[in-house]
Nucleic acid binder design. Structure first.
Lengths: 333, 333
DNA sequence: CTGAAAGCGCTTACAG
DNA sequence: CTGAAAGCGCTTACAG
């Protein structure tokens, strides 16, 4: 292993001079010396020891990505999570950061991992609303949350307009003449209840309120069960809003099993606009969110906060849009 | 920040004693002292500094997961990669390891990240066949490859019987009376060319060789293009083997566009047996690989090698199996 | 512009 | 069973 000491000896300077060159503190080292040191470091294949740097400078260049781990499903098998993580890993290393990924069940693990590695900052994926206050007070580093509906005011967060997403879905159904509708998704979480609220409010103000019986808890109940319930209902919904594209895919499959046709017998709107929505037959009408932009903004805020810890917190709400495809039929009453 | 020193002072012992207790070197510390130190550490909320430990002990407790980054598609948006990574992250932290994830375009980055963080070991996802020799010689730590068809003999690798997978697909088609078949996938990689070879060999020995024209490069050409080519062919293939389930999904979509029915007009077999294959309509017949087992074996070998660097390398080949669903029709000639 | 000293929080190796 | 010393590879803070 090549160390500063080895280079210093070769170059006939002190390790401080080498250290300065390696950290690009130009102006503090004469150009000739800098050039020479750089050349020798290159020749010897010098690679800085991050642990030593982290220890001495109290600056680890590690960003932790924390994902909530639920037993039922691996966090990285949720397409949204893996897409988001993938984007982040394409951005931050360009700024010299390394990414550590942690799944947490118990939130006290968070502090352990962050402190143990002296992480410089962290990005949170999944619902941590109830623990945010505690996490914040335990860890005095930049923490960027995503999709949080916590009422803690001073947090950095990047989310989308879930409420508006619900509205858009309702408006789309209404404009195609649908008046009796249904909703399916994991209702308990903040994100989803906003989508439901937007959906429900828009229907309400159009005079076609969403009934309680047509608010279905998925995946607690299977797509097929929910579908059969819908088909037996009176009045019978003609459209179903599902809170993600991969969930919607399961309803396509259930529809085939029940021998009903999309959109003829039931229209469908999804959420996310993932690649799968184009692939479904018929292609899925869905509410688009811009994951790429979301990841970029998350990294930007993190990088800002790292430079400038005192600046005001940001709670971003990105817009969503309707991507219209073929899963909503024209309803002529 | 609480350090060994703080605890030592409180407990009235030296930091060495505290260090021994923290590292569970039982038998080297009197039970009473150990108990007392443990209690005080707990009370003070002690969290070991991993950087300091890494520096002093030359043992970082970091495992790097290296994914090949191609510009066209984010590595974590390939369902196989994110599922595999997800499994690994559920296993290794239980042994005290932290996971760093790196995307690499240029393989010289690998050595930089591994050495800079003094990683204890690394797992590779994606094709590194050509660089394996170099990576090996640059990094004298346990490196576990996956799905490698490198001819370097002494490497740890966990793969599956891709050749057999191809055979199984062929046998399934043949047993349902199909004799004119087609193949689609990214042919250039080792994994895929094995699947192709197995498929092609099995057809050959059954007297129904796969024609060159029916070996399609996907996704270089789109599913729709390939499908149209197949439909125009004479003789016209009745079955298509696609090298992954998510690719197969695109052929379902293309089939709908071309107004042909699966499996009536074209039968399909996929690969992986991902959740999506159950959701497709009709459900996809596919070659199952056990990702969970693959991840477990990868971690087991890594952990073994970490304990016992000298033990012989392992190159595991896991079995695959046919999962029969509804996308292959009975062909009566 | 350059360097000697001290120290980051821990472990290794030795002495008792 | 316990501890004093030295050192891991780097940076901070100071002196010149």
């Amino acid at each position: 292993m090549v160390t500063l000491k080895d280079i210093a000896r070769q170059a006939g300077v002190s390790i401080m001079t080498v250290s300065r060159v390696m950290n690009d503190q130009q102006g503090k080292v004469s150009p000739q010396t800098a050039e020479k040191v750089r050349r020798i470091a290159e020749e010897m294949g010098y690679i800085p020891n991050s642990s030593a740097r982290s220890l001495a400078a109290r600056s680890s260049k590690i960003i932790a990505v924390i994902l909530r781990d639920e037993p039922a499903v691996n966090p990285l098998e949720i397409p949204y999570n893996s897409a988001f993580l993938g984007r982040i890993i394409r951005i931050l290393p360009a700024y010299g950061y390394s990414i550590m990924v942690h799944f947490v069940k118990d939130f006290s693990d968070i502090t352990f991992w962050l402190k143990s590695w002296n992480a410089q900052g962290a990005v949170f994926l999944g619902i941590f609303d109830r623990e945010i206050r505690q996490i914040r007070s335990d860890n005095q580093i930049p923490l960027i949350f995503t999709d949080s509906y916590s009422n803690v005011r001073r947090i950095d967060n990047v989310g989308i307009d879930d409420y508006r997403g619900g509205q858009l879905a309702a408006e789309c159904f209404l404009s195609h003449g649908h008046t009796c509708l249904a909703f399916a998704g994991p209702i308990s979480t903040g994100v989803i209840s906003e989508r439901l609220q937007g959906f429900s409010d828009a229907l309400q103000s159009a005079g076609h309120p969403l009934s309680r019986e047509q608010t279905h808890a998925f995946p607690d109940r299977s797509a097929e069960e929910i579908l059969r319930t819908i088909l037996k209902s009176d009045p019978r919904p003609t459209g179903l809003f599902v809170t993600s594209d991969d969930f919607a895919a399961e309803f396509y499959s259930a529809a085939a099993k029940c021998r009903i046709s999309i959109p003829e017998d039931l229209s469908l709107i999804g959420f996310d606009d993932f690649p799968i929505s184009k692939t479904l037959v018929p292609p899925l009408t869905t509410i688009r969110q811009d994951i790429d932009e979301k990841a970029r903004q998350t990294c930007r805020i993190l990088l800002d906060r790292l430079k400038n810890p005192g600046s005001p917190t940001e709670n971003l709400c990105l817009d969503v849009a309707l991507t219209e495809r073929k899963s909503v039929k024209e309803c002529n009453p």
